[in-house]
């Protein structure tokens, strides 16, 4: 188990000591590394960064329809957001979804993956497929089902009334707090199984001898989970945290399909508002582009913190 020291893995500190010229083999390997990245980097550059650059320019323009001019001052669209009550509300709502849903979902997914990874578990394929199912089901039927069961005369009220947990039917989708709760439940339902598969895949790369070693040391399943499994899954956990942060801050589907943003825009997400501004309302693409960049900056800041905390190589 002695780790082999790989020459080009040691980061070179430029400030310390005399500059060492890398060996030709190491240089060739570094070049190979760049060659590995090239196709993906070029594609992302053309397909994503070029349009992003144009969107950035657009965010400094005002005007309606296709007649756009540079704004005066240039940051006009960004300044405009400060007095946009609807946008400010969507920021709050989206952050609320993020704070509640992401931790709940990822912990549940991690627990489920750990249970399903047990080699002695029976009907593994069935459990896995069943729990993944929500992610595969078309949005159309999922939103229809959720709206139906949370309707005032729907299944949820029927059950709660039968159990005497509530006195009268609750208008789940008609009140701000409960409608937001339905959206969070919908997200949990749809994405927990999806995140679980990343953990399942990650668990397969864990060296089984480390788990056996922990067992020999007398650690129970819970301690093994926290002190052996979780640390080794850290790269995958970081991935899912970044992915769900990104997904939630750009959330559109649930807001658009489950509640249409209502009641009175209180469940609307930032991306849903962006869509309204661009394609439903009188089109204001300069403002829409500025909104997109605010979303980008918000995701980038959170992802940067997450990378800083979670992306250390030991």
């Amino acid at each position: 188990m002695t780790p082999v020291v790989v020459p080009d893995r040691t980061p070179k500190k430029k400030s310390k000591g005399p500059k060492i010229k890398p060996s030709p083999a190491a240089r060739r390997r570094s070049l190979t590394g760049w060659a590995f990245l090239l196709p993906a980097a070029v594609l992302i550059g053309i397909m994503m960064f070029w349009p992003m650059f144009q969107a950035l320019i657009l965010s400094f323009k005002t005007g309606r329809g296709s007649a756009l001019d540079f704004a005066d001052p240039l940051w006009f669209n960004y300044e405009r957001m400060l007095s946009d009550e609807i946008f400010k509300m969507t920021v709050g709502t989206t952050l609320l979804y993020l704070a509640i849903q992401v931790p709940l979902m990822l912990v549940t997914a991690l627990v489920l993956a750990n249970i399903l990874n047990n080699p002695r578990l029976k009907f593994k394929g069935f459990w896995r497929t069943a729990i993944f199912l929500p992610a595969a089901i078309s949005l159309v039927s999922y939103s229809l089902v959720f709206r139906t069961i949370f309707a005032t005369d729907g299944l949820v009220n029927d059950w709660l009334l039968a159990l005497h947990l509530i006195d009268g039917p609750v208008n789940w989708l008609g009140n701000t707090d409960t409608a937001r709760m339905v959206i969070i439940l919908g997200l949990l339902w749809r994405w927990t199984g999806y995140n679980m598969i990343f953990y399942l895949a990650g668990l397969q790369n864990i060296d089984p001898t480390t788990l056996e070693a922990a067992k020999m040391d007398g650690a129970g399943p819970i301690r093994t989970f926290f002190s052996v499994t979780v640390p080794q899954l850290k790269p995958m956990i970081l991935l899912t945290v970044i992915m769900s942060t990104n997904g939630t801050l750009q959330l559109f589907d649930e807001s658009f399909n489950l509640t249409r943003g209502g009641p009175a825009n209180t469940t609307m997400t930032m991306s849903h508002y962006l869509y309204e501004v661009s394609f439903v309302n009188n089109p204001n693409f300069g403002y829409g582009a500025a909104l997109s960049y605010v979303i980008l900056v918000m995701v980038a800041i959170l992802a940067a913190i997450q990378m800083k905390v979670g992306d250390k190589r030991d």
Binding site: I44, P51, M52, A55, F279, G288, I295, V299
Partner: peptide, 13 residues
Amino acid sequence: LAMMIPFAATMIP
């Protein structure tokens, strides 16, 4: 960074 921008913004370019 490329995945952090909503697609609605880059779709038209």
